[in-house]
Simulated assay, not measured.
Amino acid sequence: MIRFFTLVCGLALLSGCEFDSNSTFTNTDDAQSLRSLLDLPDHMPLPAIPDYNPLTQEKITLGRFLFYDTKLSANQTQSCASCHEQGSAFADGLTAPLGSSGHQLVRNSQGLGNVVYHSTLTMEQQWFFELEEQLNVPIRADNPIELGVTDAVLPDVLTRFQQDPDYQTMFNLAFPDTSRDKSNITMNKIIFALASFVRTMISASSPYDKYLLGDKSALTQQQIRGFQLFNGEKFECFHCHSGVNFSSSYRDANTALDALQFPFFNNGLYNVGGDGSYPDEDQGLYDLTLNPTHKGLFRPQSLRNIALTGPYMHDGSIASLRGVIEHYARGGSVTLTGKNAGDGRVSPLKSGLIQGFDATEEEIDAVIAFLESLTDDKFISNPRFSNPFTEQR
Rank of each mutant, 00 (worst) to 15 (best):
N143Q: 14
S205C: 02
F370T: 03
G331N: 06
L371N: 04
L297A: 05
T122M: 14
Y250M: 09
T61D: 15
F171W: 08
I202P: 10
Q126S: 07
P292I: 02
G102C: 09
T120K: 02
E18H: 06
L135T: 07
A256S: 06
N266D: 15
I380E: 08
G99L: 01
F90N: 03
S196K: 02
Y208H: 13
P45T: 07
S381G: 07
I145Q: 11
T95G: 09
L303D: 12
D177R: 00
V272L: 11
A218N: 14
K295R: 12
S247H: 06
T159Q: 12
L158G: 05
G87T: 04
Q168F: 08
F90M: 08
L321Y: 13
C83M: 12
P279A: 13
P144V: 12
C17S: 15
Y52Q: 12
K189M: 12
G284F: 02
V244Q: 15
A218Y: 13
L269I: 09
Y208S: 13
A48E: 15
Q104R: 15
V157A: 04
G273R: 04
A74M: 03
L38E: 12
L105K: 14
F230W: 07
R199V: 00
S205P: 00
G273L: 10
G323I: 04
G296H: 11
I354F: 05
F357Q: 02
E18S: 11
L269P: 02
M170P: 00
V334N: 10
L131S: 07
I190S: 01
C80V: 00
L7E: 10
S179H: 10
D343H: 05
R199H: 11
V367E: 13
A256K: 03
F171M: 06
A48H: 10
